[in-house]
């Protein structure tokens, strides 16, 4: 890994609800190097989006980041004053959201919305310069007829174009880190391929690191170099994409891999049995054990740590406890 850009250490994000405290993110450690593509995978509600929201400082009440550190480029985001933090948001860290249809303000032109992100962080820029730069970014993200589209409203654009606008907004300040929260989930497959291609191309050109949150392992295989698999607020497996795809260790990751449809196969599509547990009533011991086909008595009692099965490849499962001489959290 190159220079560390983002370090998340023992992050806890908790929702204080009437029914009880929900630990949406429960002690997550994560690292993203400069210019690196990192995937975060997991089922809905596993805490992957909340991890991203915590980095952005966008966790809404009754949720709160109540433990751990987030270091960005050597600065601690968690200890920063809101005003200081806003200077980084949209500027050095930007985010693309899942819903391009609703993520843009319906009563403002798309050009203005992108321009706002630019002007907010570049106070000296004249209106004309800013406009020209936005149009250039529009061209860069492949919006046809960019100068005309600048003055259009979100409802006049298709979903794919809106997501391109979102990417333009995220890229306009040349951020060091871009967080993409399921950027293609709401789009159809051909547009998905285009958007991923665009992001990859921009990422290579500008050297932006990307945190790609997805539940689509195909996207990860195509796009990312490293991977974190999350389940019920914890990282279950992490390592390079190559290593994990070659040597799947955690039963959960294995289940996810098998759940990807195979066009050649005539067999019924595999699915992981059971349901994601309610975050209010997590099982004791390993969080995955009620759904795991390999679970033993120990799994129901104790929570496993992250075991390093090969350099840089960590697995949170007792099956790999003996295999590794080295123990401990990553």
């Amino acid at each position: 890994m190159e220079e560390r850009l983002l370090q998340i250490q023992d992050l806890h994000t908790t929702f204080f609800t009437r029914e009880g405290n929900v630990h949406a993110v429960d002690g997550v450690d994560m690292e993203i190097g400069a210019g690196e593509n990192v995937g975060i995978v997991g089922e809905s509600g596993c805490g992957k989006s909340m991890t991203a929201m915590s980095v952005m400082g966008l966790v809404k009440k009754p949720g709160k980041v109540d433990g751990g550190k987030i270091l960005f480029d050597g600065m601690s985001l968690t200890d920063m004053r809101p005003k200081e933090r806003r200077k980084i948001l949209g500027n050095q860290i930007s985010m693309i959201f899942q819903e391009p249809m609703t993520s843009l303000n319906p009563v403002t032109t798309v050009g203005k919305q992108v321009k706002e992100a630019l002007c907010l962080h570049n106070k000296g820029l004249s209106q004309k310069e800013a406009r020209e730069r936005v149009v250039r970014v529009f061209e860069m993200v492949g919006i046809p007829d960019a100068a005309k589209r600048y003055g259009e409203y979100p409802h006049q654009l298709s979903g794919g174009l809106r997501q391109r606008v979102m990417i333009a907004m995220a890229m306009v300040c040349n951020p060091k880190l871009m967080i993409a929260d399921e950027p293609t989930t709401a789009l159809d497959v051909t547009i998905e391929a285009q958007i991923l291609h665009l992001m990859k191309q921009l990422q290579e050109e500008k050297g932006t690191a990307v945190m790609m949150i997805t539940h689509n392992l195909g996207v990860v295989a195509q796009f990312c170099t490293r991977l974190y698999v999350m389940y019920a607020g914890k990282v279950m497996e992490s390592g390079t994409v190559k290593e994990i795809f070659k040597n799947v260790c955690h039963p959960y990751t294995d289940g996810l891999m098998k759940s990807v449809p195979d066009m050649e196969s005539k067999e019924r599509l595999y699915n992981i049995r059971g349901m994601v547990p309610s975050m209010l009533h997590l099982p004791k011991g390993c969080r995955f054990c009620p759904r795991c086909q390999y679970s033993g008595p120990k799994c129901f009692e104790e929570e496993p740590k992250l075991y390093e099965v090969s350099p840089g490849h960590f697995v949170r499962c007792f099956l790999f406890e003996q295999q590794t001489a080295q123990e401990g959290e990553a």
Partner: peptide, 10 residues
């Protein structure tokens, strides 16, 4: 959602 987008812009 677009309020979240605005917040993400800083």
């Amino acid at each position: 959602d677009y309020i979240r987008t605005a917040r993400a812009k800083g």
